[in-house]
Simulated assay, not measured.
Amino acid sequence: MKKHLQRRKRRSVPVPIASMGDIAFLLIIFFMVCSEVSKDNSKARLTLPFSEFVEKIEIPVAARIAVDENGEIFFDGYQVDSVKEVEMGVRALLTKTVSDDQRHVQFKCDAQLTKEQFEPVIKAIAAGGGIIEAVGENNE
């Protein structure tokens, strides 16, 4: 005598996928806002200087200062009128820092600028309490 085996019917559990698209877009927007690329919105047109001593540093920066080919100064992407504004801006950003890791300021300048043109900006960053991270291109 054969016994008939009865198979159990599997119940399908519905997975709600309607909101997954919303979640994916929210995650994309979150990572775009938090990324370092979105913070570098400088309108400065410059050619970075070359050096054999360039190395990549993974330390987050508190501010980004750039001096373009015309000597115009940009603080976090916005043009400022004087070196004094750079010093005061860096000082204001760094007032509540507790460690040196929070005091790094990225500095970019055009390769064609002379020392007399960019040195006051470097002095202003230092006077404001920033640790300067100069940006350049590798010779390789």
Rank of each mutant, 00 (worst) to 15 (best):
M1R: 01
K2R: 08
K3F: 12
K3Y: 11
H4F: 14
L5Q: 12
R8H: 04
R8Y: 05
R10D: 15
R10C: 07
P14V: 11
A18S: 10
S19P: 15
S19A: 13
M20Q: 00
D22T: 13
D22Q: 06
I23N: 02
A24Y: 01
A24D: 05
A24G: 02
A24E: 09
A24P: 05
L26I: 03
L26K: 10
L27P: 03
L27H: 04
I28N: 02
I28Q: 04
I28P: 00
F30N: 05
F31H: 08
F31C: 05
F31V: 00
M32R: 02
V33T: 00
V33K: 01
V33R: 00
C34M: 13
V37G: 10
K43S: 15
K43T: 07
L46V: 03
T47G: 05
L48F: 10
F50W: 01
F50P: 00
S51I: 04
S51R: 03
S51T: 07
F53I: 12
V54Y: 07
I57Q: 04
E58C: 11
E58G: 11
E58L: 15
I59N: 07
P60I: 12
V61H: 01
R64P: 03
I65R: 04
I65C: 01
I65S: 13
I65Q: 00
E69P: 01
N70M: 06
G71I: 00
I73S: 13
F74W: 08
D76L: 10
Y78K: 12
Y78E: 14
V80N: 10
S82Y: 03
V83C: 11
E85G: 09
M88D: 04
M88P: 00
G89C: 08
L93E: 07
L93V: 01
L93Y: 04
L94K: 07
L94P: 04
T95N: 12
T97V: 14
V98P: 00
S99T: 15
S99M: 06
Q102F: 00
R103A: 02
H104V: 07
H104C: 05
F107T: 05
F107G: 07
C109E: 01
C109V: 00
C109P: 06
D110E: 03
D110P: 10
A111F: 08
Q112A: 03
L113G: 04
L113Q: 09
F118W: 14
F118D: 01
E119H: 13
V121L: 05
V121Q: 06
K123F: 15
G128K: 02
G128M: 12
G129Y: 02
I131Y: 06
E133V: 11
E133I: 12
E137Q: 10
E137G: 00
N138G: 10
N139P: 05
